[in-house]
């Protein structure tokens, strides 16, 4: 009887000790991780086969993925000027396009350009960024808006990695709408 008691107490003590996953900076232990680790290389994972150690490798230059059209205006002042004059929005102005444009604008542009496009976003108010122009002060066309989203201009970076072609045009459409409202 006494032995059983002692054994139980010892067992409980042991379990209590081992049940603590103390170091939160390391993952918890696993029991027989059969198919836990991917055999293939997953997106963003490390990869010993490439010199830069990344699974994500750049596509060969000049290749075009199906469904994509390369953007032909260069990231220069001339490219900007020609895009400003020539480039036209392939999407028709519709409720759905504008709605998604607004959604995307509110994610990717709001912080600096502000809700109405007057250059009064949160980051400007907090003085992290200064000199964000009001849309009405700039002579911008749909071509130039798209070009700047695509390549960036001066301190504004390219947002091509974050938005798809269609979304960029939708944002362009929404920005134009904001501008006409500001000009009123």
């Amino acid at each position: 009887m006494k032995n059983i008691l002692k054994i139980t107490i010892a067992l409980v003590f042991l379990i209590v000790l081992s049940s603590c996953w103390g170091d939160k900076s390391k993952p918890n232990y696993q029991y027989m991780p059969d198919m836990y680790k991917s055999v293939g290389y997953e997106t963003y994972s490390e990869n010993p086969n490439y010199s830069n150690g990344m699974t994500t490798q750049l596509p060969a230059e000049g290749t075009i993925a199906r469904g994509n059209v390369p953007y032909e205006y260069t990231d220069t002042n001339e490219g900007y000027e020609t895009a400003k004059l020539e480039l036209k929005n392939p999407l028709e102005i519709s409720e759905a396009n504008l709605e998604n444009g607004e959604k995307m604008y509110n994610i990717y542009c709001l912080s600096c350009h502000g809700k109405s496009g007057a250059g009064d976003g949160v980051l400007v108010e907090r003085e992290k960024f200064l000199g964000v122009p009001n849309y009405k002060d700039r002579d911008i066309t749909e071509g130039s808006i798209y070009h700047v989203i695509m390549h960036g201009r001066n301190l504004m970076g390219s947002h091509a990695s974050q938005l798809t072609t269609k979304e960029r045009w939708q944002v362009t459409m929404y920005v134009q709408q904001l501008r006409t409202e500001l000009l009123k």
């Binding site: 250059g119 003085e127 960024f129 200064l130 000199g131 964000v132 122009p133 009001n134 002060d137 001066n154 301190l155």
Partner: peptide, 8 residues
């Protein structure tokens, strides 16, 4: 300056 120039 803040609204117009500070971007560049």
């Amino acid at each position: 300056f803040k609204t117009n120039c500070a971007a560049c």
